[in-house]
């Protein structure tokens, strides 16, 4: 009898978590709904001009900012992460491997705001002086900072997959007389293709979702970037900025539309990852325990 109630309690906690997710989606939809009823409003928000005082609330420049920043950061971080994953997979002495792994795990615990903070005081002046153009707050600086931030995410996902594959193939590879480097390059990396894609998506998602780095070092100008030294504004920092400056009612619709966009992007990425095979799987099969 009590077992039944416990199961119900556990079930309702799981239900509550799911309801929270639905509620997030519901609220975003509810507050941006007026836009979808009015074709002019929709065209206004999905336009290339953000001039709140002239009544123009386009969020497309921020979309462009988000994607260019995330792709650039991924482009820098992804090769680095593959390099580190290979490094810790037999290319280096065990002691160095352990230190590097420990450091990468430590990186996950460094607060985002600290990455942004240090970047403001080291990278930004460097770029300002070296390129002698603008304020130094630009796409490139934020992409480099963000790349450092997402390296651990990509690397850990990659390593998990490679460890699993390695168990399956390492005996065969060793018996063929391959060196660890050959095994990595010709066996392990080619056969963890799924893991390579999942790791890239996870890193991309982390880059899209990050607020603080973009807000602190990207310059926040709501324009389409034409060069790596242009300031950009992302969807995430756009939300933070508009809420902080307390604009008029119309601007609020546009931030909820931006929030909805972010939600949909992340939901899409999550679905792609699940289709590729969930990292955590469905749990291993076990004997059914009678209750």
């Amino acid at each position: 009898m009590i077992e039944k109630w416990i199961e119900r309690a556990l079930f309702s906690s799981a239900l509550l978590c799911s309801l929270c997710v639905t509620a997030v989606f519901g609220f975003l939809l509810y507050f941006s709904w007026p836009l979808f009823l009015d074709a002019r409003g929709l065209a206004n928000v999905f336009s290339w001009v953000w001039k709140p005082f002239a009544g123009q609330f386009g969020i497309l420049p921020m979309m462009a900012g988000t994607f260019s920043l995330a792709l650039l950061a991924l482009g820098i971080a992804y090769p680095l992460a593959i390099g580190i994953a290979s490094f810790t997979h037999g290319l280096a002495p065990a002691r160095i491997t352990k230190t590097v792994l420990g450091l990468v795990y430590f990186m996950t615990s460094i607060p985002t705001v600290i990455y942004g903070f240090v970047s403001v005081f080291i990278l930004v002046p460097l770029f300002r002086d070296y390129f002698d153009r603008g304020t130094g707050f630009c796409l490139m600086v934020s992409a480099i900072t963000l790349a450092i931030l997402i390296v651990p995410t990509i690397m850990i996902a990659l390593k998990t997959e490679m460890n699993q594959r390695s168990e399956e193939v390492c005996m065969g590879a060793r018996s063929l007389g391959l060196t660890p480097a050959q095994e990595l390059l010709w066996v392990l990396l080619p056969c963890s293709g799924r893991g390579l894609v999942i790791a890239a998506i996870l890193g991309f998602g982390r880059a899209v979702g990050d607020t603080l780095v973009a807000l602190m070092v990207a310059g926040n100008a709501p324009v389409i970037p034409h060069s790596l030294l242009d300031p950009i504004r992302t969807l995430t920092s756009h939300i933070a900025l508009v809420v902080a400056t307390d604009s008029q009612d119309q601007a609020y619709y546009s931030i909820f539309a931006a929030g909805l966009m972010l939600f949909l992007i992340m939901a899409g990425l999550t679905m792609v990852i699940r289709n590729l095979g969930n990292r955590f799987g469905q749990g291993k099969k076990r004997h059914d325990i009678p209750s």
């Binding site: 799911s18 639905t22 609220f27 509810y30 992340m266």
Partner: peptide, 30 residues
């Protein structure tokens, strides 16, 4: 049921923190 719930958890873990903040803000407006 398990696949639905674990999808929801995946969705929640992918959610950018600013969207969580926006949710709280929306809750107050509501």
């Amino acid at each position: 049921l398990k696949s639905i719930f674990s999808f929801m958890v995946d969705l929640l873990s992918g959610m950018p923190s600013i969207v969580m903040g926006l949710f709280g803000f929306a809750l107050i407006l509501f």
